[in-house]
């Protein structure tokens, strides 16, 4: 028996802050699995995906919420990501159970920091750092795009009218949070 126990640590220690009624917080219990579609394997994978989550792979730039509050988001051709509430370090076993061997899976749960920005000032804060047009008619709810914020690769997903899921590499989480916090400090009254 090994005498030592490993303790997990949230990337940003569960950051949570409110500026008036706009809130920025780290989502610490989210699992993410990247799925690549094998060549000539789209039909088989879509079948499984539809059975498991209710829909086919969305077009690049789109996402949907499937069964079990699972978000399936696609940023590229032949590649998508499945996100779901899960406190543990690995999401692959859960996805594999549903999709079998129809896709190539890469664990992304620990690769990212997941932040949620919500409230009336969310767009104004993003406007200072992100080139994406977040007008609700252009960047509709469930839209999910990769872009950059202050030179850092970013996944931006609109999860509600005033709510965004924002992801960046976990190693730059500190700089990334600083960018969003600074934006909030600047735009809030």
């Amino acid at each position: 028996m090994v005498d030592f126990t490993l303790e997990p640590k949230a990337v940003l220690d569960g950051f949570d802050k409110i500026w008036n009624s706009t809130r920025l917080r780290e989502l610490t219990e989210l699992a993410a699995v990247a799925v690549s579609v094998p060549k000539d394997g789209a039909v088989a994978l879509n079948q499984k995906l539809k059975a498991a989550y209710g829909r086919n792979v969305p077009a690049a730039g789109e996402s949907f919420i499937g069964k079990g509050n699972t978000r399936v988001m696609s940023f590229a051709k032949d590649q998508f990501m499945i996100l779901f509430d899960h406190a543990a370090h690995s999401g692959i076993p859960i996805v594999e159970k549903k999709l079998g061997n129809t896709g190539y899976y890469v664990e992304q749960t620990n690769n990212w920091v997941f932040l949620e920005l919500s409230g009336p000032q969310a767009r104004a804060a993003l406007e200072r750092v992100c080139p994406v047009n977040t007008h609700v008619d252009k960047f509709t709810v469930n839209r999910a795009e990769r872009t950059n914020i202050e030179h850092m690769g970013t996944v931006l997903c609109r999860t509600g009218d005033d709510t965004f899921l924002i992801m960046s590499a976990s190693s730059t989480a500190g700089s990334f949070l600083h960018a969003l916090e600074t934006s909030m400090d600047y735009v809030s009254q």
Partner: peptide, 14 residues
């Protein structure tokens, strides 16, 4: 006119 390669590095990686 010039055909050139661009990589969508902070995007879909195409």
């Amino acid at each position: 006119k010039y055909c050139e390669l661009w990589y969508h590095e902070q995007g879909d990686r195409s």
